[in-house]
């Protein structure tokens, strides 16, 4: 039986290292991505932290507006570009609505980085298939830029991204860059286009099926709403991807972000601490289907 001897913590517990106390960050720039999604660019108020802070693609943070509360966001900028940091914010609740009311210069709280990260070591030397939907591009984008900044380490790269409508496509400036990049196979699709839309229509899973990237020596990374993830797994299986070749991030309601508060518990795991990045092989082995 492993029971922690709390008395041993006497020396180790440092009030200044209280993990719940956020660092202060300042908002530098706000980009309105869609009517409900905006990206905020920020840096730390403490100049030392600006130099020291590092993270890995796939990790997340707790952003807080004092007096409103905290919410969980993945860091959507690339770890290779540490001059500032970015988070994509979908307006769905109390804290995200408050984050949408912010202006440049606002001071907010930041705790993190938390969680595990995408396995770049496994992805090295492989063909990569990125499949994203809606705001799910935020964590994927961090990884994609990380990979593109070390382009020669990876083989063929396909990016398949979709949203409900052209107006819901996030990070359009990135999409334009990737589409123009001849070394990438970038496919953008929308569930339903509008009068101006000249691109592809249809679900992401269908675009993936049509693109039919080879599963040989490949890793697929899937991020998006659960309904998209659930429809994408079978297509990848048909394309010959084994469960351990498919990687995704899970989204759960979180409060603490560090495996204490309990709500992201799934089986014996905590998504915040043991995830949020999991392989499809791991997910298939979960005790619970509550993801």
């Amino acid at each position: 039986m492993i029971i922690t001897q709390i008395k041993q913590r006497r020396k180790e517990l440092d009030r200044d290292k209280n993990v719940y106390v956020p660092h202060m960050v300042l908002v530098d720039k706000i980009i309105e991505e869609t009517p409900t999604v905006r990206t905020i660019h920020f840096h730390f108020k403490d100049p030392e932290l600006n130099k020291e802070f590092t993270f890995e693609a796939g990790q997340f943070a707790e952003l807080s507006i004092f007096g409103v509360g905290e919410a969980t966001f993945c860091i959507s900028s690339s770890p290779t570009r540490n001059d500032h940091w970015e988070c994509g914010i979908n307006r769905v609740g109390l804290v995200t609505a408050a984050l949408h009311r912010l202006g440049v210069g606002a001071e907010i709280g930041f705790r993190g980085p938390y969680g595990n990260h995408f396995p770049l070591d496994i992805m090295a030397g492989k063909n990569l298939v990125f499949v994203g939907g809606g705001i799910g591009l935020a964590p994927l984008r961090s990884l994609i830029w990380n990979v593109l900044d070390n382009r020669d380490k990876y083989d063929k790269i396909a990016i398949i991204y979709g949203a409900r409508s052209p107006g819901d496509l996030c990070f359009k400036y990135d999409l334009d860059t990737w589409e123009a990049d001849q070394s990438l196979n970038t496919i953008i699709t929308v569930d339903k286009g509008d009068a101006m839309w000249k691109g592809r229509e249809g679900f992401v899973s269908e675009a993936l099926r049509d693109a039919a990237p080879s599963s040989r020596n490949a890793v697929a990374v899937v991020c998006g709403p659960p309904v998209m993830i659930r429809s994408t797994f079978p297509v990848l299986e048909q394309l010959g991807f084994m469960p351990d070749q498919v990687i995704t991030t899970l989204e759960k309601r979180m409060k603490c972000g560090i495996g204490k508060c309990g709500r992201c518990n799934i089986g014996n795991l905590y998504v915040c601490r043991d995830g949020p990045v999991f392989s499809y092989a791991q997910i298939k082995g979960f005790i619970s289907d509550e993801y």
């Binding site: 029971i3 922690t4 008395k7 290292k17 993990v19 495996g259």
Partner: peptide, 19 residues
């Protein structure tokens, strides 16, 4: 529950009282 509040990250509020 000591274990929960001490694993991976120390939970300041719990442990500062508990210790």
């Amino acid at each position: 529950i000591d274990h929960v509040f001490a694993v991976t990250y120390d939970d300041y509020y719990y442990i500062s009282k508990r210790r």
